[in-house]
Design a protein around this nucleic acid. Sequence first.
DNA 1: TTTATTTCTTCACAAATGTGAATGAAAAGG
DNA 2: CCTTTTCATTCACATTTGTGAAGAAATAAA
Lengths: 187, 187
Amino acid sequence: MNSFKSYLQNNFTFTAEEIKELLICFTLKGYKKKEHFLKAGQYCKNVAFIEKGCFLYYEIIDGEEKVCDFAFENDWITQYNSLLNNVPSTVNIYAIEDSKILVMDLPKLEKLTVSIAKIGILRAKLAEQYFTESTKRASQLANLKAEERYEILLKEKPEALQRIPQYHIASYLGIKPQSLSRIRSKN
Amino acid sequence: MNSFKSYLQNNFTFTAEEIKELLICFTLKGYKKKEHFLKAGQYCKNVAFIEKGCFLYYEIIDGEEKVCDFAFENDWITQYNSLLNNVPSTVNIYAIEDSKILVMDLPKLEKLTVSIAKIGILRAKLAEQYFTESTKRASQLANLKAEERYEILLKEKPEALQRIPQYHIASYLGIKPQSLSRIRSKN
DNA sequence: TTTATTTCTTCACAAATGTGAATGAAAAGG
DNA sequence: CCTTTTCATTCACATTTGTGAAGAAATAAA
């Protein structure tokens, strides 16, 4: 539970009182490698904070797993569209390492948002941040070639290259594993 | 001002009172073709609702205009990241037709958000909607070939193909004008 | 450790997209 | 109306990425 506390203290100015109120809303849950947090077709009912581990987002397109995002320690996992609009998710989320997450359901989140104003700010900031990230990814996919996208990922998220299998990285970059292999062998 | 009123009434359940309070916060402004709403390097201070016309979002990458979004009547224009985090925009936004927009500055928006609770809901919905749109675009760029992306655009936003020059459409699709021409000539 | 399974690499060839140039069509401006 | 500028198309050739197969390397399971 410690990493979550320091996350809250470092990134937002929660008081000890607020943090206490916050913490009791979460449930610590373990996920085995390959266990799903959310499957396509399900309604996403939770948000979770990653204490330890790594989660992958993917869609099935033309029968293939297409990775659209990933998240490590100190990041959140949820599926906004499904959670907030109460529609089935098109996205799957699962652990690719044994992981531990702090889970809270939507009703509790709504209550917290009312009782602690800063939660609203946190939510707005996160939503905006994810939008910005997504925009950046789209821009790279549209305007850079695979090799450049790989170099940027290597530079900006080196841990991803070490913890996520290369065929998933390739998928995230929008190319085939063989192409990523070819790019890597040039250097 | 009529299209904005019906937008508010149709999409959100504002009262006549609220709409009145809302409307006085906006200023109607005309934009000539090619006139910029926001230039890269500037701080975005406004949000605006498009009454009439069409706006294009683009970035300069490798010296070229790369289109990252566009918006028509009944849509909003702003640059979230710059507006909310008070940082210079990397994105340009300009009218590609003579246009009319309703402009409101950030301080007024913040005040309205406090005085009319539904504005907060509208903002959250819009942010989430833009995130979902961006995710969808990224997914298409990563997983579909140019021809499929074009077909989808043609089907989902046919008006774009008619009002936006093809070399801008090509850029939005992440390809060169010649490639779009080649794709189009196949059918 | 041994064996099975998964992941990564390499290769030859195919398909998709980029590039630069040339041409014509369309639109804008005078 | 004519002139200029912008935009769209086509072509031949270059570059990037995909595809399927084969085998090597790494990891997991027994």
